[in-house]
């Protein structure tokens, strides 16, 4: 291992790291918004929209992100819809994640007993109040383990961004290996930066999970 080489490559990896994180988190935010929306459509069985939401979930859960990105990035421009690589990455991740988040939220919503809704109404709450103060906080706490697992899964999936020529960590590593053959150093930095990206999330995730559990059940 040559530390001179590592020092030289570090700025390149840093740039790639920041780009990966930026697109990754935009995608994750998109997936949360989309997931909540789709979960409500499915939970309240809104006609027509419910069918679209169901088809969306099945399609995106049963196809790989790599193929989805290829379709978004190379396929869609052919029918006149051009999206930049950055937005393609975020959108692809958001769409994939949305389908997973929706399932997580829906099981959270389904786990809330009907008596909660009934009690809220009998206390004279409006529909909006019941929603904001009774249903949402509980559904969110119940879905936290699923959300954490999905966030980690989505951050890992960012590694396919290189396929649509985004200069992410994988792209940088592959590029440098191809140019200079410093395979060991390049792979070391690649692993290091992925640990840097995912280990904090993994640790924070288990802390948040425990807190949410404590709030719900007091154990």
């Amino acid at each position: 291992m040559d530390f001179g080489v590592i020092k030289e490559y570090l700025p390149l990896y840093e740039k790639a790291f920041l780009l990966t994180i930026k697109i990754g988190w935009i995608g994750i935010l998109l997936s949360l918004v989309l997931g909540i929306l789709v979960a409500f459509i499915l939970f309240y069985r809104i006609p027509v929209l419910k069918l679209i939401a169901g088809a969306y979930i099945e399609l995106f859960r049963n196809t790989p992100l790599l193929v989805q990105l290829f379709f978004l990035y190379f396929g869609l421009p052919k029918i006149g819809l051009s999206i930049s690589a950055e937005w393609c990455g975020a959108l692809g991740l958001g769409l994939l994640g949305g389908s997973y988040m929706a399932e997580g939220f829906r099981s959270g919503l389904e786990a809330i007993p009907v008596s909660q809704t009934e009690s809220a109404y009998s206390l004279g709450m409006s529909k909006g109040q019941m929603f904001r103060k009774v249903i949402l906080p509980q559904a969110f706490s119940l879905s936290i383990p699923a959300i954490v697992a999905n966030v980690i899964f989505l951050l890992k999936e960012t590694s396919v961004f290189s396929a649509i020529s985004l200069m992410d960590l994988m792209f940088t590593a592959k590029d440098l290996i191809g140019l200079y053959y410093n395979t060991t150093e390049c792979l070391f930095l690649l692993v290091l930066f992925y640990i840097l990206m995912l280990l904090p999330v993994s640790i924070a995730g288990s802390v948040v999970e425990k807190k949410a559990r404590y709030r719900m059940f007091g154990v």
Binding site: I152, S159, V160, L190, Y194
Partner: peptide, 8 residues
């Protein structure tokens, strides 16, 4: 396995 992407 949990934190390393399969691609890596």
């Amino acid at each position: 396995v949990r934190i390393m992407p399969q691609m890596v």
